[in-house]
Each structure stands twice: as structure tokens, then as C-alpha cells.
């Protein structure tokens, strides 16, 4: 089915972001594991897989709309040099994802493409949960301090 080129471009930008997130969570997981924070490593590992499933949904939609999924483009993969820096960088990435999907949803409305909008809204809900969880953790970090917070993830 022939899709609106603006929608395909927006989906490709979302795909770039999801593929970036797959890598960013994956390296964060591996580094956390290397530093013996196995609980956080597991969380990041699962989030990396979640982002890959999001990428799959987007790829399927681009192909359905007769577009070409761009698999070779990435945004900068932001690798923190400490557990807390990584956590903050991942939180910033999730906030950008929420803004991107909100803008994407508005574009779908404008282009009369409710099919794509439904898909984006499901992804948006997932990213909003990530943002909410991260905000709770950052509040937690503020309340109990770095050492206790880090101890949670060993």
C-alpha cells in the first residue's frame, strides 16, 4: 500500500531512534554487568530487546507502506562512563522518544493515517512507561543517595 512520504520519513526517523536505543541499552547492560551491577544489567538487557521489538513493528509498517526501512543510520550512541551517567543518558533518550512519537502521532492525524497512528501510540505508551520508571529511580537516587542507590543494582 502506497504510504504518504512524510509518514515513511517519520517512521524511518523513529526506526533510527529505536536502532540507536537497542545499541545504547545493550552496551549499558554489558558495562553494568562488567561492573558487577547484574540487576541493572538485566533491566537494560530486557529494554534493549524491547527496543528491538519496537524496531520490528516500525520496519513492518514501513514495508507495508511500500517504503524502504533505513537500517544503516543511527543517532549518536551515548555511552556513559559511570552507572549514574548511563542512567541519565538513557533517561534523556527516552524523553526524546516520547516527544518524537507525540509529534509523529500529530503528523499521522494530519495525513489521515490512523493505522500508523495506532502503532505509534502503542510505542509512545511503552516509552512513557520507561520515562516514568526512570523518573521514579532518579527521585529515589536523590532521596537515598548514590551509594544506597547503586547497592540496589548489585
Amino acid at each position: 500500500m502506497n504510504g504518504d512520504p512524510r509518514i515513511i520519513e517519520m517512521l524511518n526517523e523513529s526506526l533510527t531512534a529505536e536502532l540507536t536505543a537497542v545499541n545504547q541499552y545493550f552496551i549499558a547492560s554489558k558495562m553494568a554487568d562488567d561492573w558487577s551491577y547484574s540487576k541493572l544489567a538485566k533491566e537494560y538487557y530486557d529494554e534493549s530487546i524491547d527496543e528491538m521489538k519496537h524496531a520490528e513493528t516500525i520496519i513492518d509498517r514501513i514495508l507495508f507502506l511500500d517504503g524502504v526501512p533505513n537500517m544503516q543510520r543511527l543517532f549518536p550512541v551515548e555511552v556513559g562512563e559511570s552507572l549514574i551517567e548511563q542512567f541519565q543518558l538513557n533517561y534523556e533518550m527516552e524523553k526524546r522518544a516520547v516527544l518524537r512519537y507525540r509529534a509523529g502521532s500529530a503528523l499521522c492525524h494530519e495525513a489521515s493515517d490512523p493505522g500508523t497512528r495506532n502503532l505509534l501510540e502503542a510505542l509512545l505508551k511503552s516509552e512513557e512507561h520507561h520515562v516514568d520508571d526512570a523518573e521514579a529511580e532518579l527521585a529515589n537516587l536523590d532521596q537515598i543517595g548514590e551509594k544506597l542507590w547503586l547497592a540496589k543494582w548489585v
Partner: peptide, 11 residues
């Protein structure tokens, strides 16, 4: 944050 992954240069 690591900026250059090839040569390990941070921000």
C-alpha cells in the same frame, strides 16, 4: 560520556 568510540575520547 564517550563521544568518539574509535579512539575513546569523552565529552
Amino acid at each position: 560520556m564517550l563521544v568518539c568510540h574509535c579512539l575513546a575520547v569523552n565529552d
